[in-house]
Computed example of a mutant assay.
Amino acid sequence: MVSPVGKLGQVILKEKQLWAAAAMVVVLLILVFGPAVSQVKKNRATRDKLSERLAVLEEKLAVLSGVDPLLVDERVKRMERVFPSKKPVVELISTLSQLAGKHNLAFGGVSLKPGSLQGEGEASKAKAEDLADLRFGFEVGGTFDGISNFLKELESVAPLMKVEGVGLTIKTDPVVKRQVVAVEAAIEVSAFYQAPPESLGSILTPVSLLSVRDEAFLNRLFNFTSFETVLPVAQTGKTDLFAAP
């Protein structure tokens, strides 16, 4: 016959065995289903993130769908003509030569300023938002009216230029009647250019619409006079612009 103390010990032993079995079951469940639960949580987080990206892309697509691609293409071309991404040496000489011809002026005496022939590698070391400038001088010869009209139009032709200085020399006697006054102008200008950005940013970056000020600036670009890039046939060295042929 088992004593009461022995029965109590057996009950306690069975309870310990049950608790041990329950603990083993819990451990097994964690080992088996733990990674699956963790993966489910990761999948939910990924799904939420992708849903947010999809919403951003759908909004961006809606904005871009309302943009006229032909207008954008025309604006980019116009911007490149007026504000080029590379040093516009040939374009500048061609424009100045044709603009001078438009006003019946002789064109020559082109001289690049020291430092203006820096390599593209040196220019790329500057900050992306910094403007690069090409400074040079040239000479035009003709009448006062022709040179005056030339200077008025100079800052509204492509590529973009800024007049830094003008020096005038009268080549004929202005007192003599019935004689056209011949004038030679030595002009110094700066032309500006800027390399395009290396990246347009993340595809998730929202589209920034143009402000009223940006639109006004772009509309001004359409008023700039553009000439076809043609190398001038006139001599561009330091010569007498009024010498007889």
Rank of each mutant, 00 (worst) to 15 (best):
M1C: 04
S3Q: 09
P4Y: 06
P4R: 13
L8Y: 09
G9M: 15
V11F: 14
L18G: 01
A21R: 14
V25G: 03
V27R: 12
L31F: 13
L31N: 04
G34F: 03
P35L: 06
P35V: 10
A45R: 15
A45W: 04
T46N: 11
V56D: 06
L61C: 09
V67L: 10
R75H: 04
T95I: 01
T95H: 02
L105H: 06
A106V: 05
F107D: 06
S111W: 02
L117K: 08
Q118F: 03
Q118T: 07
E122R: 09
S124Y: 11
K125N: 05
K127Q: 11
E129L: 10
A132M: 12
D133V: 13
R135D: 12
R135I: 12
G141W: 03
G141L: 10
G146R: 07
I147H: 05
E155S: 15
V166P: 07
G167K: 11
T169P: 00
D173V: 06
K177C: 01
Q179P: 01
V180W: 00
A185I: 05
I187L: 08
V189L: 08
Q194K: 15
P196H: 00
P196C: 01
L200Y: 13
L200F: 15
S208W: 00
S208Q: 11
L209H: 02
D214A: 11
L218S: 01
R220D: 10
F222C: 00
F222L: 12
F222Q: 12
T225S: 09
L231C: 01
K238M: 06
T239C: 01
D240H: 03
A243P: 03
